[in-house]
Design a protein around this nucleic acid. Structure first.
Lengths: 181, 181
DNA sequence: GTCTATACACCGATAGAC
DNA sequence: GTCTATCGGTGTATAGAC
């Protein structure tokens, strides 16, 4: 198993159990690697694994979800493309958000910088699209924040109600919310 | 210290650290009670403490936040009253949501029933207000879900950005979102 | 690189004196 | 009811053979 494949397994554990709820035993079982092997790849232990997983997720998000926002097409098309990628990113709303779970408890002190960075990039990128669509700057920023709020909130509701219908509805409405028509 | 005062301290710990991140040592320090004393009040240990805290929060929410929704005033007034209480409940957006943090990891299996119940009550109560305001049933329900989504999402954004401006903005917009004017 | 074995701290929980 | 002392278990992390 390559390091990249291992990271893909680790991310599942962290996002399901959170930082404190994730144990080396769970990480070991998920990857099939022994504890000592995990420490070979990640000498910094659990904290380094989480930081690496977070960096990997951030990078994936930027190149996959945010890239369509910079395409040379109509703003509405770009936003629809983003929504579709978000849907994949969160597995149709059935997966928790790694950023949300790692922003809690002692993990907050360790990782909030990384999480804050990616959210700001997301907001900024969306804002730029709306400005290109002719929306005034401050309103563009507020609507971009609203979009992220709704995605995050919908994930929580889907998790608690065990029903992703409202998540799907939220994603479908994103273009309208952002472009205001 | 009365049991009720102790619970008020316990809730702070659980909502800051989540279930797995909360330790008996933290709970002991927060209340000023020794571990053995905590077990005297809560023989079921940490799980019983969390369940009690959750029950207490649910009850407080119902009597304080949801009660204004059943008042004999205009729907818009009731929703404004609810928003104000939500603002207090989450300390102007500076506190995490106990329900959101206890819906993660192994705590999900233990407590999601309680959390699901209170969210459904919240949605149902809001829906009823909107129906009284003349809004069609299905749309009333969807808008109620949207309101909860936005509150939850705004709390996450506030925590990550360390800035509650968007939470305040979200609360201020709730009447408009719900009543659609 | 991966394994077994293990160190050491802290976890939740309990015993028993007062 | 609250305390000190402590239990068994598990957590993270490491040592050392292979």
């Amino acid at each position: 198993m390559s390091k990249e494949e291992a990271i893909a397994k680790l991310i599942q554990v962290f996002r399901q159990y959170g930082y404190e709820g994730t144990t080396l035993t769970k990480l070991s079982e998920a990857t099939g690697l022994g504890k000592a092997s995990l420490y070979h790849y990640f000498p910094g232990g659990k904290a380094e694994m989480a930081a690496t997983v977070l960096e990997y997720a951030n990078s994936w998000f930027e190149t996959t979800v945010l890239k369509p926002l910079k395409a040379d097409t109509q703003p509405e098309e770009r936003i629809k493309a983003m929504s579709q990628k978000i849907n994949e990113f969160y597995n149709q709303g059935q997966e928790t958000c790694l950023w949300a779970v790692l922003s809690v408890g002692e993990a907050h002190d360790l990782f909030n910088n990384q999480i804050q960075n990616i959210l700001i990039i997301w907001i900024d990128t969306l804002t730029q699209v709306l400005i290109e669509a002719g929306i005034e700057a401050q309103q563009a920023r507020q609507r971009s924040e609203d979009a992220i709020i709704q995605v995050q909130g919908a994930l929580i509701l889907a998790r608690v109600l065990n029903n992703n219908a409202s998540f799907q509805r939220t994603l479908a409405r994103l273009p309208k919310i952002l472009l205001g028509n």
